[in-house]
């Protein structure tokens, strides 16, 4: 009886905590989605009545569409570079038992741990010292450095799950190292690369600190533009942009899950 009571209290407590965290996670997203569907002129919650007018407005606003396109280009380039560099690094680090590999791992991970502001400022100073002028590509470089750790982490998890005997076996069957990489290693870590790339893309797309420091005057990215708009006026178009981003992100996650399971790449090695 006593124990039953304790169990119930424990269950209730855990349930309440889970509900509270879920609410905390979902509420902002839901609120912004709801507000974006207002027919009014303000970011008032709840909206007086419903309409899609701000979404229509959005697609008539070149001053928002242009930065959105820039952000897409930056995020795409960043994802490509991060995926290639991060996968190569993960393969090197997690196939090696040397101390240097552990050191490199920590080094590559450092942008994830360091405050992004401090890191961006120092990168800006470095560019200054070596005389590199800010451009689209300096921005991509900065984004790549902060996004590579995501790819390394997730591809690394996939590499660690990969049975090294499979590679040995492939070699024993007469395959070259390159053939083994293409036919065995790559297909078996593809899930990690997909998941890592997706996270790299999203994290580049909404990155503010790096963009703030490393973008030149002509390269305007979406998050900074949105902030600028919000500063001037409480424009409902910002909510509409957020709505679009939330929906696209959800679609991306659903696709990745369907393609092979993002959650599994985050999880523990399968038995």
């Amino acid at each position: 009886m006593q124990r039953d009571l304790g169990d119930r209290v424990y269950g209730g407590l855990v349930g309440a905590l889970a509900a509270a965290s879920t609410l905390l996670l979902l509420a902002p997203t839901l609120v912004v989605l709801i507000i974006s569907l207002t027919s009014g002129m303000t970011l008032k919650f709840p909206p007086p009545s419903w309409s899609l007018r701000w979404y229509v407005e959005l697609f008539r606003s070149p001053e928002i569409l242009a930065p959105a396109l820039t952000s897409l280009r930056v995020a795409s380039c960043t994802t490509l570079f991060s995926a290639v560099l991060g996968s190569a690094a993960a393969l090197g680090i997690f196939n090696s038992r040397s101390r240097l590999a552990r050191l490199l791992d920590a080094l590559f991970m450092s942008p994830m741990v360091l405050p992004a502001m401090a890191f961006s400022l120092s990168l800006l100073l470095v560019f200054n010292v070596i005389g590199l002028r800010l451009s689209f590509w300096t921005l991509v470089l900065g984004h790549t450095i902060v996004c590579v750790p995501f790819v390394i982490r997730m591809v690394g998890a996939a590499v660690q799950q990969l049975d090294p005997t499979l590679v040995t076996c492939s070699l024993s069957l007469g395959a070259s190292r390159w053939y083994t990489f293409r036919r065995i290693t790559l297909p078996l870590i593809r899930r990690g690369i997909t998941a890592g790339s997706l996270v790299a893309f999203l994290s580049s797309f909404d990155n503010v600190p790096v963009s703030l420091f490393l973008a030149d005057a002509r390269t305007e990215v979406l998050p900074i533009k949105l902030w600028a708009i919000l500063e001037g006026s409480l424009d409902v178009r910002v909510a509409a942009v957020s709505g679009v981003i939330v929906v696209i992100t959800l679609l991306g996650l659903v696709c990745a899950e369907a393609l092979g399971g993002l959650s599994r790449s985050f999880g523990k090695p399968s038995p």
Binding site: T168, C169, L171, S172, L173, G174, A175, S176
Partner: peptide, 9 residues
């Protein structure tokens, strides 16, 4: 090298 020895493992 191993991949040229024609060994079945």
């Amino acid at each position: 090298p191993a991949n040229r020895r024609r060994i079945g493992m």
